[in-house]
Simulated assay, not measured.
Amino acid sequence: MKKVFVALSGGVDSAVSAHILKKDGWDVTGVFIRVWQPDFLPCSQDEEERAAMRVAAHLGIPFKTLDLSKEYKEEVVDVMISEYKKGRTPNPDVLCNESIKFGGFLDYALNEGAEKIATGHHAQVIEKKLVRGADASKDQAYFLWKLTEKELSHTLMPIGHMSKDEVRKYAEENNLPSAYKPDSQGLCFIGHVDMKTFLLNFIETSNGDVLNESGEVVGTHDGSELVTLGQRGGFTITKKEEMGNVHYVVGKDISKNTITVSENFNNEENLTSSLTLTDSNIENGKYVCEIRYHGEKIECEVQDDVVTLSKPVLMAPGQSLVAYERDVCVGGGIVT
């Protein structure tokens, strides 16, 4: 019997994944992954682990706990904080998938004799290629762009062909303990947390000026590291003539601790149709690109890590650009 280790979080997606695999004849082991938790936030890991144990007991499968606290702190949290300090906007879910679920967890599973790992991602692995999930509103392929054939060849995503409603219905019909458990949202593994609040525990910031596009001071902010390009609000407008209007961040200067805002998000002077990538795994060619999770699909051409978009965009350095051929994710890169 083929052995698979399922990343069991206690949520409905991973529970249904484990149930499907057991029904299909796999030798299933549930694994709860423990990660570093900040001491200034309520810790829900013990509760989540108990929920995962209840799922494993219900399914009659072995249950293990894998502690990746050190790897999570060093390879996800510390990297994320370092990027924000530089004025960039990283995607922690991309880091988490690469280092934890398809890094430490995959290595552990293979060393323990498993042929595959499985996760509850809303995405699909078809012929060792990463494909969008069937439920467009829940599709998570964007966060998985760093996966290569090496990882995908050892990965199953059993619910990728299902809608979220179908997952819930399946869990209810099979009386899974997590059938009615709310979806988890927020920072990978940690859950819902205000990013500004989180970062203020690690980054020493100071108040600075908010400028309009003419360079005139129109307000104040709590720290340029805490805002990202395209962000609406998150600063204080003090100039009377500008108060009450909606402003967007269109520029920032970490060295001067200033941010620039505009009422016109789509001002061509703030946009670009050419982006340079680092850490890219996209081959040269023409694709459809997304510059943020569930963002607009934009035609693009990639040539030696330079991406030319069919329309100009406002893109924050550090964010992920992900390329697709139809529904197949062909890779991505980090915007410089």
Rank of each mutant, 00 (worst) to 15 (best):
C188I: 03
P158G: 05
Q140Y: 05
H192C: 05
H121L: 01
I298Q: 02
K116V: 05
G11N: 03
A57R: 14
T238C: 10
E47T: 14
L106Y: 02
V328T: 15
K73D: 00
K3Y: 08
V250D: 09
H247V: 12
V227W: 10
G230E: 09
P38G: 11
V125G: 06
I126T: 10
V76G: 05
G295S: 06
T65H: 03
S153Q: 10
L226Q: 04
A18F: 06
T236L: 14
K64G: 00
R232Y: 13
T308R: 13
G230M: 12
G113M: 02
N270W: 14
H221V: 07
G133F: 00
Y324R: 12
P90K: 05
K164Q: 04
E290A: 05
K129C: 07
V261H: 08
F202H: 15
L275H: 11
E268C: 00
G331I: 01
G160P: 01
N257V: 02
A52W: 01
W26D: 07
G60T: 05
G160T: 07
H247M: 13
E75P: 01
E283G: 13
E204M: 08
E151H: 06
G219F: 11
I117E: 00
K70S: 11
L199D: 05
L144F: 11
E225Y: 10
M80D: 01
S262Y: 10
A56L: 03
K150D: 14
L229K: 12
R88H: 14
C300P: 01
N266G: 05
E98R: 15
D139P: 01
R168W: 01
A57D: 14
E173N: 12
L21G: 03
V330Y: 08
L211R: 11
K196L: 08
F198G: 03
P92W: 04
N201H: 15
I282R: 06
T65P: 01
K3E: 11
D139I: 00
T148P: 03
L130H: 08
D13P: 01
I190S: 05
L309S: 08
K70C: 05
L277K: 02
I298V: 13
G215L: 07
K64S: 11
T272C: 09
D305S: 14
G30E: 09
A171F: 05
D279K: 11
G295L: 05
K116R: 07
G25K: 00
D78N: 14
I190A: 02
I33G: 01
G25D: 06
E204R: 09
C300A: 07
Q185Y: 12
Q140G: 03
L321E: 07
R54Y: 06
D327R: 11
N207Y: 10
E225D: 10
K239P: 04
S214V: 09
L314H: 05
I291F: 09
L95A: 00
V131Y: 11
A57K: 14
S14E: 03
L152P: 06
Y287Q: 00
T276E: 14
S214F: 13
W36K: 07
E47Y: 12
V313G: 02
L314F: 06
D305R: 12
A15F: 04
G233F: 13
L8P: 00
D93T: 12
A134L: 11
G133D: 00
G60E: 05
Q303Y: 12
M53R: 15
T272R: 10
E241I: 14
V335H: 06
K240D: 08
A134P: 00
L144A: 10
E166S: 12
R132Y: 02
Q37D: 08
E268P: 15
G103A: 10
I117W: 00
